[in-house]
Simulated assay, not measured.
Amino acid sequence: MLLCVGAARAATPPPAPAVPLTRLDHILLWGRGIDQVTSVMAVKLGFQVRPGRDPGGVANRYIRFADSSFIELLGITRPNPTFDPGMKEDQQALKGGPGSRSFGFRSSSLDAIHRSLQALHYAVTPFFAGPDSAKPGWRLFAFDRAPLSSNTFFIDYAADYAPDQFDPGNTADHRVSREHPNGARELSSIWLVSGDAEADRRQLERMGFGHAVPVKLTAVGAKGFCVPVGPTALLALQPDGAGLAAKTMAEGGPRILGVSFGVSDLGRAQRWVERGYERALPTYRGLWGESVLAPSQDDLGLSIEFHAMQPARSPCAGAAVSQ
């Protein structure tokens, strides 16, 4: 599932049509080690972490949510691990430290999207399937050169694919595996940071994701655009004065700056993170309403935002509100 993702060649055809069933699916989050990142996510932040595999010296684990999205945790477990091209590129950019610079769009219309991007002269890869040829559970394509400041790919799954369960037919296990002590229920948005938010916005529009709305995130010192992707939002950001965004760019360059999660009880999530980090945390008015930002940058290389879940609405409806 970890592939090199790539970029667009210049072309003039009209933008590809956005597919209504497309949404943000997951991020790939590297830790300093698999146990370190698991501990931070579970103990300090209150997520339930599910088992994964360790096929070649790079272990993975999962944090799955009720809306079908997830986080894939990664960590090196032995010297000279076997990297695929995407892993190698991530590790070079992250310099072996924690962080994330790859994320996936999920769609049931992969073939149509693949054809549309080819027609626009994007350097898309062939399709890949896994976890094995006998019973592939997922199918994806990526890019030979990244069109955005962080790597991306498009993915979909077989209806019965459940990599973190021994018995995919056990619905009770399926439900419990998506319940978290911090109350997290859904992935709401992924925040990209680069030196040119407008360049990411243009590429997203060309790929079929238009309707961008200007946004300003005072909490991390960033500004840019909120781009709706189905029920989720992709934020294309750049530093806006001093702050976490500028610090991140100076120390590590373009990457995923943060991820937002809707929780059933914001007070519970806030208390969990305050106990985990042994400090009081203020709430603020964010893109999704009342929110709290976990001080996880040093541990994870990105920020985790929790917000109170909102009734169904446009994912960028709150973008005009200064955070």
Rank of each mutant, 00 (worst) to 15 (best):
Tyr284Asn: 06
Gly262Ser: 15
Leu293Met: 14
Val263Leu: 11
Gly301Ile: 04
Arg255Gln: 10
Leu300Val: 07
Gly252Asn: 11
Arg279His: 09
Ala294Gly: 07
Val273Leu: 12
Ala250Asn: 07
Val259Gly: 04
Trp272Asp: 00
Leu287Pro: 02
Ala242Asn: 09
Gly258Arg: 03
Val273Gln: 09
Arg285Trp: 09
Leu237Asp: 04
Pro231Val: 01
Arg268Phe: 09
Gly276His: 09
Ala269His: 13
Ile256Met: 10
Arg285Val: 11
Val259Asp: 03
Asp240Asn: 13
Leu234Val: 03
Ser260Trp: 13
Pro239Phe: 05
Gly289Ala: 15
Trp288Pro: 00
Arg268Tyr: 08
Ala246Met: 06
Gly230Ser: 01
Leu293Thr: 07
Leu300Ala: 06
Ala280Lys: 14
Lys247Thr: 09
Asp298Arg: 12
Lys247Asn: 09
Leu302Gln: 02
Phe261Val: 08
Arg285Asp: 15
Gly262Pro: 03
Pro254His: 07
Arg285Leu: 14
Met249Ser: 04
Arg279Ala: 11
Thr248Asn: 08
Gly267Ser: 14
Ala236Gly: 00
Leu281Ser: 01
Gly286Thr: 08
Phe261Pro: 10
Gly258Ala: 15
Leu235Ile: 01
Leu257Asp: 01
Leu293Arg: 14
Ala242Thr: 10
Gly267Lys: 13
Gly252Cys: 08
Pro295Leu: 11
Glu251Lys: 08
Tyr277Glu: 02
Ala246Lys: 12
Pro231Trp: 01
Ala269Cys: 13
Gln238Lys: 00
Trp272Glu: 02
Ala269Asp: 10
Gly243Asp: 07
Trp288Cys: 00
Arg275Asn: 11
Val229Trp: 07
Thr232Leu: 01
Val259Glu: 05
Ala236Pro: 01
Ser291Tyr: 14
Arg279Ile: 05
Leu300Phe: 11
Ala294Trp: 09
Gly289Tyr: 15
Gly267His: 12
Arg271Glu: 14
Leu244Thr: 12
Asp265Phe: 04
Ser260Met: 04
Ile256Glu: 02
Leu287Phe: 11
Ala245His: 04
Asp299Cys: 07
Trp272Gly: 00
Ala294Asp: 08
Leu302Cys: 06
Ile256Arg: 08
Val273Met: 14
Pro239Ser: 03
Leu293Ser: 11
Arg271Tyr: 04
Leu300Trp: 10
Leu257Val: 04
Leu235Phe: 06
Gly230Ile: 03
Leu234His: 04
Leu293Tyr: 07
Leu287His: 08
Thr248Tyr: 02
Glu251Thr: 09
Gly258His: 06
Leu237Thr: 07
Leu300Glu: 03
Ser264Leu: 12
Ala280Trp: 04
Val229Gln: 02
Leu302Ile: 11
Arg271Pro: 06
Glu251Tyr: 02
Ser291Glu: 15
Glu251Pro: 00
Leu257Met: 07
Val263Asp: 12
Gly258Gln: 09
Gly267Gln: 15
Glu290Ser: 15
